[in-house]
């Protein structure tokens, strides 16, 4: 996908999100209007009008929900296609989800986030960053925000920023996550990003702090990512003069995975750094 195509798709995504918001508020307003008009508050015709509004809202809601359920299924299918490596089909499916009319914000967010993951895997880092920024913007907020998406979107944005070499952008993206209570899954996402940032920024003492806990989390990852995190920790230990620990971590990394297949630069994305996050 070219950057122009991504930009135009993001414009559509923003429009769709605003539409989903508008529909939601419109339904709430219509329901409230129906109940204000109901009862013996005014003319005799008003309860009938209330019933008419209520019926219209329910029918319109039903039609939109049916269409949105189809879009949700397609988004799920796109995520599965991406997780099994069928990228072209995944891209087509996800783009179609964003182009479809949906009142489910989470469906649009899933589709967009998966698209970002796909772009990241294709090496289109700038476009991926733009997509994650859009997801981050719409997954937050007091009303209608999706907290689980928001945290993941932050981590994915940080990952893309690191791949682009933008350390300040990466820090800005994942810093708020530090204060939050994270699930084990989010912690596993955060750890390699945090380590890559700390190594690239030269904060190696911080990278080796709580080494045992970090290794414990690395042990829960799949083999290539576990090896990658072990290599990052080994590098931090080496820079801190912890030679025994560095050697131990390198040996473990080699046992997990072929280390020659891992990227040499700490700022580069590791194996499956963000892929497969949303399954």
């Amino acid at each position: 996908m070219s950057e122009q195509e991504v930009a135009s798709l993001l414009r559509l995504f923003r429009w769709r999100m605003r539409f989903a918001d508008a529909v939601r508020w419109l339904m709430v307003a219509a329901l409230l209007a129906a109940f204000v008009l109901a009862g013996p508050m005014g003319a005799a015709a008003l309860p009938n009008l209330a019933m008419l509004i209520l019926s219209a809202v329910l029918v319109a809601g039903l039609v939109l929900v049916i269409g949105s359920v189809r879009a949700a299924r397609a988004a799920h299918e796109g995520a599965i296609l991406l997780s099994v490596g069928r990228r072209e089909e995944a891209q087509e499916t996800l783009v179609n989800v964003i182009k479809r009319l949906s009142v489910f914000r989470s469906t649009l967010l899933v589709a967009c986030q998966q698209l970002g993951t796909l772009l990241r895997a294709q090496g289109n880092q700038t476009a991926a960053r733009d997509v994650f920024r859009a997801v981050l913007k719409y997954s937050g907020g007091r009303f209608g925000g999706v907290p689980s998406f928001h945290t993941t979107a932050r981590l994915m944005l940080a990952d893309a920023e690191l791949a682009l070499g933008n350390l300040a952008g990466a820090y800005e993206a994942f810093q708020p996550v530090y204060g939050a209570t994270l699930s084990v899954q989010d912690r596993l996402l955060l750890l390699p990003i945090e380590l890559r940032y700390l190594l690239a920024a030269g904060h190696t003492a911080e990278a080796v702090a709580n080494l045992r806990d970090k290794v414990r989390y690395a042990e829960l990852m799949d083999a290539p990512r576990a090896a990658w995190v072990h290599m990052l920790l080994a590098e931090a230990c080496r820079r801190e003069g912890l030679e025994r620990q560095a050697e131990f971590l390198c040996r473990r990394a080699a046992l997990y995975h072929d280390v020659t297949e891992l990227p040499a630069s700490p700022t580069a994305g590791g194996p499956g750094s963000i892929e497969g996050v949303m399954e």
Binding site: A38, G39, A50
Partner: peptide, 16 residues
């Protein structure tokens, strides 16, 4: 209640 506000009670307050 929406179809017939006076269904359960004759009181205007309750009906609202």
């Amino acid at each position: 209640l929406l179809a017939s506000p006076g269904w359960l009670s004759g009181s205007r307050f309750v009906q609202v």
